[in-house]
């Protein structure tokens, strides 16, 4: 099975569901409101995403797990940082944002510079 990627907060939400499943979606809304201060629509959106990723299932408002927690975490190899931020910018502005990624050599050179620096 292909690796499923979860963001940190998504993971916390998923943990919450695994802990309480089976649970109604309205219960989840209440819980996320307390835990994360999320609106109802946000809770539903993230739940939808988790369901689409194949982790959970919603039958008539009752949410149950498709994969168990242990099984899921055994498959994770790395943390996933979603840089969807740049997707919110108009394309022509995004074009201006190049040039800030540095190569490994440059990074190494700068790291050395930091290490060697003295007051």
């Amino acid at each position: 099975m292909a690796e499923i990627q979860l963001g940190v907060i998504e993971a916390r939400y998923a943990d919450m569901i695994w802990e309480h499943e089976p649970v109604t979606s309205s219960e989840l809304v209440k819980m996320t409101a307390v835990e994360f201060n999320w609106k109802r629509t946000t809770a539903h959106n993230v739940l939808r995403r988790l369901i689409d990723k194949g982790l959970f299932r919603n039958d008539n408002g009752v949410v149950t797990a498709v994969i168990s927690r242990e099984e899921f975490y055994s498959r994770q190899s790395r943390q996933y940082v979603d840089d969807t931020f740049s997707g919110s910018l108009p394309a022509f502005i995004a074009a201006f944002m190049q040039g800030s990624r540095i190569t490994a050599e440059e990074a190494e050179a700068i790291r050395r510079m930091i290490d060697r620096a003295e007051e």
Binding site: V8, I9, W38, V46, D82, T84
Partner: peptide
């Protein structure tokens, strides 16, 4: 819209999955 899923850490500081920088 993006940061609706952000979660408050403390005061005015939030973390969010979808945020890179």
């Amino acid at each position: 819209r993006l940061v609706r899923e952000g979660v408050c850490v403390r005061d005015h500081i939030y973390i969010c999955d979808a945020v890179g920088s």
